[in-house]
Amino acid sequence: MKILVTAKRVPDPEQKVKLKGNELDQSATNWQLNQFDEYAVETALRLTENASAGNARDGEVVVVSIGPKDVQQQLRSTLAMGADKAILVAGEDAELDAEIVARTIQKLAERDKPDLILMGKLAADSESNDAGQRLAGYLGWPQATFAGTIEVVDGGKALLVGREVDAGIETKKVTLPAVVTVDLRIVAPHAIKNGKTAKDHAYAEGPRYASLKGIMAAKKKPIEDTTLQALGVTAQKRIKTTTLEAPPARKAGIKVQSVEELVQKLHSEAKVI
């Protein structure tokens, strides 16, 4: 199975965000791989290895990112985890939106013909959650978003995807090629059944750490550099940022003397009960 995984770098969510005029001040940003994308890479690796036979690989995992040159660092970290190859499409974060991203991945999918495109369900910075859905629409492929479990069925021709929806788990069968976006629980010990690894195999919780061997091997793995123009992407940015402002500073709370006073204030001042 050939899997294309999308990976976006995002500012460290633990870091305090600074504003510079009408944009984010990214001069001191610590960049890291979007967590859901890291889960997508882990999912792709679990789908293409036989964990019951010393992690023997059966398939190819290609990770793609769109961004400036230094996104290579995040791509290398996915190669160190075990991905086979990476593609870096040159671009600046400020000039991208979900439309351009979806069109770019569409072009790459038409060129490289993967069996499956795995994506994080959303990026921790924009939280827009729409690139995967657009992409499936443009490719005319089936989609399964918010995947919490994946099982390879029909001899590798389809996936049974457990989707995390408001009402619970919806199980959906998608024939390949397909677009799947992954949710948090996809990295649980029993979330992936790939038809090769023993069904009762328990993976370690969470995405894997790159081993020293993995880090050294990543140095020799290829990263293809390309551009939006070279891929023939003509989409224009549709989202425009009008203003950007920090949330107002929290005001100090007040102390109440009694439960009665609290209830009265919640009712008459906060008007929540």
Binding site: Q73, R76, A80, Y209, A210, A218
Partner: peptide, 15 residues
């Protein structure tokens, strides 16, 4: 080097 830096970051993350 880039690899040494990656190794150090990974060690920190693991620990």
């Amino acid at each position: 080097t880039e690899e040494q830096d990656a190794l150090k970051r990974q060690a920190r993350r693991f620990l």
